[in-house]
Design a protein around this nucleic acid. Structure first.
Lengths: 331, 331
DNA sequence: CTGTTAGCGCGTTCAG
DNA sequence: CTGAACGCGCTAACAG
C-alpha cells in the first residue's frame, strides 16, 4: 500500500511537495509536478482520505441527513435518488460522505448532535426531508456551527444554503395542464394539501390559490397530510362535488384516483413528485416530475461552495410536468 | 470540542487509560473505569472515528456496497431497508460506514477497487444485490484482501461470510400456502423464475421443483428476469393453461396478476420479497416477507465477527409467509 | 520554489 | 494496573 512517503521517495522530493501537487497548490514548478505525478501513476498511489480529513480540519467530510417518512415506504424512491445523486457528486468532488438517517438522531439534543458530527470530523451537512417539526435540526441550522444545505427549505446565509424548485409555480402549472386536457370549463376544484409542518405545503398552496383565482374557480382545500388513505377519504367526501382534484403529492393522488374509481366517477387528478408508483394508480395522471438525483447533486455542489467560503444564495431548479401511466414504466 | 486528551486531564489519568476504557481493555481497575466514564459523560465526549480509523489499522471502517437494480425503482424499498438496518447497527457497534453504489464502481478493475477502498481505510465490505455478472466484485471476494459479508450469496471462509434466508424452503412454503387456499387439487403450475445470473434463482428453482414433485404437479418453468413486463407476457401466454402461478419476485407477481385481470381469468399468484408495492397489484397475494433491515443488521454483526478474527460460517435468517393487499398498507 | 517541522486524535507497545 | 512515547498518513505553517 503506497503512501505519500513512498511517492516522495520515488520522486526524490519531500513529502510536503507531494501533498502540494495533490492539492493543486500554486507554488510548484511544472517539472517537479510532472515528476511527482509520474511516481503517483507508477505506484498506483491513492491518497488516504481518512488521514487527510484528520489532518486538515477544513477538509470535506459531509453528512447526508435523510428523513425516511414512515408514512410511505413506497416513496423510498425519492430518498434513494437523493442519495444516488449526492454520493455520486461527492465522490466526483472528493468529498467523504456519511449517510445518517433521522431515526439515528432521534432523542438527541442539539449539543449531542454537534458532538456527534464533530466526532466524525463532519463540517457540512445536507438535509433531505426537513419539516417544521424537526425543531432540533432547525436549531442546528440557526447555530451555524456547520455548513448546511437544505433541500426544499429556503434559508440562506453565510453558512447555509438550499436547493429547491419553484413549488408555487409548479403547483400552478400542473393544475393548469390538467385542466387543459378537457374542453369543458371547470368551476370547482378540490385541493388536497400536505402537512402544515411541511416547508413546501404553504408554497404549493399559494400556487393553487393563484390558479383558482386566475381561472375564477371555487377552491375546496383539505388537509391530506401526505397520506394516501386520508386523500382517499377526502375524495370520497368531496370528490363528486368538484370538477378536478389536485393533490400535493403522488401518493395522495393515487388515493384520490382509487376513490374515484371506487365511486365509479371520473375526475381528472394530478399529483406532485413524479415517483414511479404513480403509474400504479390505475389511470393516467399528470404530475410534477422532480429530478431528485439532480437536486441532490446540486446540493453537494452548493455545499462545496459553502465550504470554500462562498455565501449561500440558494438554488432553484427546474421541474417537468409529465403524464404517467402503467405502460410507461413496465418495460 | 472535547478530545481524549481533555477526558484524560479531567479524570486525572493518562490518555492511554481512557483509550483502554473506551475499547474495553481488560487491565483497568473498576475504580478508574468509573472515573473515566464519568468524565466522558460530563464532557459529552464522543471518540473521533476518523482518528481511530487512522490509528488502528484493524479498526472498523466498512463499505456498504449497494446494487441498485435499474429494472425496478419500485423495489428501492429493499435497498433502503438494507441501508437502514446496516447503518443503524454499525453506529451501535461504533463502525464507520461508507455507502457505495455499484454505479460508482462501474468500469473499475479489481486493482482500482482495491486502491479505492484502501485509500478510504476500508477493511470490510458488505455487498447487497450481488449477481454472477458482477465478476469484478466476485474477484475481489476471492482475493480475500478485505473482510466481506455477502447478502444472498453463500460463500464463507476466513475472510468472507454471508447472510441469507433458506431460499428453497421459502419458495416451497409460499407455494404450498398458496395452494392450500383452495380445496380443489391443482395439477399444473407456472413458475416465473428470476435471472440465470442471480445467486438466489437456482435455489428458489430447487424449492419449486421439490414442491411440484411432492405434490405431483406439472411444472412449467419460464424465465421472467425479474421483469414485471416479462412476467406479464409469460402469463398472457401460459397463464390460462395452469392452476396457479408462482413468481420469484413480487414485481413479477404484480405483472402476472395484472395479466390475469386483463385476461379476466382467476389464478392464484404468489410472489417473493414482501415489498409494499405488492399491495398495489389489485388483488390479495401471498408472498415471502423478508426483513431486509434485520438481514442487514446481521450482516454488520457478522462483519464485526470477521474483523475480530472469527471465521465466517454464514447466517441463515427467518422469513414469513404473508398475505398482502391494498387495504393493509393504506393507513 | 522546496524541504523541515509540528501536530490532527487516537491506538499501541513497553517500561514502570 | 498505569503512563510516557511513538506513529498512522497527511496538511500547514515556517524556514531556507
Amino acid at each position: 500500500m503506497a503512501s505519500i512517503k513512498d511517492v516522495a521517495k520515488h520522486a526524490g522530493v519531500a513529502i510536503s511537495t507531494v501533498s502540494k501537487v495533490l492539492n493543486n497548490y500554486p507554488n510548484i514548478s511544472e517539472e517537479t509536478r510532472q515528476k511527482v505525478n509520474a511516481s503517483i501513476q507508477e505506484l498506483g498511489f491513492v491518497p488516504n482520505a481518512v488521514a487527510a480529513a484528520l489532518s486538515s480540519k477544513h477538509a470535506g467530510r459531509i453528512a447526508l441527513l435523510i428523513n425516511l417518512t414512515d408514512t410511505a415506504q413506497t416513496a423510498d424512491e425519492i430518498s434513494l435518488q437523493y442519495m444516488l445523486g449526492a454520493l455520486g457528486k461527492a465522490r466526483e468532488l472528493g468529498l467523504d460522505v456519511v449517510t445518517v438517517f433521522f431515526s439515528m438522531l432521534q432523542g438527541k439534543t442539539v449539543d449531542e448532535m454537534v458532538n456527534y458530527f464533530r466526532s466524525q470530523s463532519i463540517t457540512g451537512i445536507i438535509v433531505c426531508g426537513l419539516s417544521k417539526d424537526d425543531t432540533t435540526i432547525l436549531k442546528l441550522v440557526k447555530k451555524q456551527i456547520f455548513k448546511m444545505v437544505l433541500i426544499d427549505v429556503p434559508i440562506a446565509n453565510e453558512n447555509t444554503s438550499y436547493v429547491w424548485i419553484n413549488q408555487a409555480e409548479a403547483q400552478y402549472e400542473v393544475a393548469k395542464k390538467t385542466m387543459e386536457l378537457d374542453t369543458i370549463p371547470y368551476t370547482r376544484i378540490l385541493y388536497i394539501a400536505g402537512k402544515d409542518n411541511g416547508h413546501v405545503t404553504p408554497e404549493r398552496l399559494k400556487g393553487i390559490q393563484k390558479f383558482a383565482k386566475d381561472y375564477k374557480m371555487k377552491l375546496n382545500i383539505q388537509k391530506g397530510y401526505f397520506s394516501e388513505k386520508k386523500a382517499r377519504e377526502i375524495t370520497m367526501e368531496y370528490g363528486e362535488k368538484v370538477d378536478m382534484i389536485v393533490c400535493a403529492s403522488d401518493l395522495m393522488a393515487i388515493g384520490a384516483m382509487r376513490a374515484c374509481m371506487e365511486m365509479d366517477i371520473f375526475r381528472p387528478v394530478c399529483g406532485f413528485d413524479g415517483i414511479t408508483l404513480m403509474a400504479y394508480a390505475g389511470k393516467q395522471m399528470n404530475t410534477v416530475k422532480q429530478n431528485f438525483a439532480h437536486i441532490a447533486e446540486e446540493a453537494v455542489a452548493e455545499m462545496n461552495n459553502l465550504m470554500s467560503g462562498k455565501t449561500g444564495h440558494g438554488i432553484v431548479l427546474d421541474y417537468e410536468i409529465v403524464r404517467m401511466e402503467y405502460k410507461d414504466i413496465v418495460k
